[in-house]
C-alpha cells in the first residue's frame, strides 16, 4: 500500500479504465452517448443559428457552419466535461479514500484523462467524417490539432486539481461551475467568430482561456483565421502555470481531505 505512493503504470491504466467504465456503467449504448451528445448539440446549434437566427459568419456559407462549429465545440466539450467531472472526483471517491491509501491525484487525473480520451475519439471521428463529406476540413491539420490538445489537457488538469481540492471543502463549487461553464462557452468564439463581436469587446475575449483554443483549432483545421505562434507560447505558459498552481494547492490540501469528506 505504501508502494501506491508511486503510482505504477498498471495502476494508472486500471484507474482510467475504471473511470471510462464508470461513465457508461449500466447504459446500453455506452460510448455511443459520448459521440451522440455533442453531435446532437452540433445539429441543434447549426439549425438554430443557421435556420432560425439566419446568422452568417462572415466569409462562410451556410454549409460551412457545421465544420466551423464542430472543430471548436468538441474541444470545448472535452474542456468543460474534464473540469466538471474532475471537480467532484475526490468527493465521489470518498469511500475509497477512507479505506485504501490511493494516491489522491490519481483520482482527479484519471477523471480528466477519461474525459479527453472519450472526446478526442469523438473529435477525430467527426473531423474525419466532415473531411470525407468535403466540407473544407484539411485532414493534414489533424495531427497538429491533436498536438494542440497537449496544452489544453495540461490546462484542464491544473484547473481540475484546483477545483477538486476546493470542492472537498466548499461543496458549492460544482454547482457554481455548472452555471459558470456555459457562460464561458458563450463568451468564447465557439458559436461565432470574434470578428462579429463589437470591436470594443474583442480584446476582452483574450481573458477567456478557451478563446485561443477555439480560434487555433479553426486556423489549423479550416484555415479560418491565422495561426499565431506567440499566442501558442502564451497558452502553453498559462497551461503550465495553472498546472503548477493546481499541483501546489492539491498537495497542500490533500492531507486534510479525509477530515472534510
Amino acid at each position: 500500500m505504501r508502494a501506491a505512493a508511486m503510482p505504477s503504470g498498471l495502476l494508472i491504466h486500471r484507474f482510467v479504465g475504471r473511470e471510462l467504465r464508470n461513465r457508461f456503467a449500466g447504459s446500453i449504448w455506452g460510448g455511443f452517448w459520448a459521440l451522440f451528445q455533442p453531435l446532437l448539440q452540433l445539429a441543434i446549434m447549426s439549425f438554430v443559428f443557421m435556420r432560425v437566427f439566419n446568422a452568417r459568419v462572415p466569409g462562410l456559407d451556410a454549409a460551412s457552419y457545421a465544420p466551423f462549429l464542430a472543430v471548436a465545440l468538441w474541444p470545448w466539450t472535452a474542456f468543460a466535461d474534464g473540469v466538471l467531472r474532475a471537480t467532484t472526483s475526490i468527493q465521489e471517491n470518498a469511500a475509497l479514500i477512507g479505506k485504501v491509501a490511493v494516491p489522491r491525484e490519481l483520482l482527479v487525473l484519471s477523471s480528466v484523462a477519461a474525459s479527453f480520451l472519450i472526446h478526442i475519439a469523438g473529435f477525430v471521428a467527426v473531423v474525419v467524417v466532415l473531411a470525407l463529406l468535403g466540407t473544407g476540413i484539411r485532414l493534414t491539420g489533424l495531427l497538429p490539432a491533436l498536438l494542440l490538445y497537449v496544452p489544453l489537457v495540461a490546462l484542464v488538469a491544473g484547473l481540475a486539481l484546483i477545483c477538486a481540492s476546493l470542492q472537498v471543502f466548499v461543496r458549492d463549487l460544482s454547482q457554481a461551475l455548472g452555471q459558470l461553464l456555459p457562460l464561458l462557452l458563450y463568451c468564447a468564439p465557439v458559436f461565432y467568430d470574434r470578428m462579429q463581436v463589437p470591436p470594443a469587446y474583442r480584446s476582452l475575449f483574450e481573458l477567456n482561456p478557451f478563446t485561443f483554443y477555439a480560434e487555433t483549432f479553426r486556423a489549423i483545421l479550416l484555415g479560418h483565421g491565422t495561426f499565431d505562434g506567440g499566442r501558442l507560447l502564451v497558452a502553453c505558459v498559462v497551461a503550465v502555470g495553472v498546472l503548477l498552481v493546481g499541483h501546489v494547492l492539491f498537495r497542500r490540501l490533500k492531507p486534510h481531505f479525509e477530515d472534510f469528506l
Binding site: 500500500m1 508502494a3 501506491a4 505504477s8 498498471l10 495502476l11 486500471r14 475504471r18 467504465r21 464508470n22 456503467a25 449500466g26 469511500a95 475509497l96 479505506k99 485504501v100 490511493v102
Partner: peptide, 21 residues
Amino acid sequence: AGFHPEYTGRDNVAMSAALHG
C-alpha cells in the same frame, strides 16, 4: 475494502490488487 459496488467481484479484486502494487 474500497470495493466499487457496480463492479463484479473479479473486477474489484483486480483493482484492489493493483492498489496494493
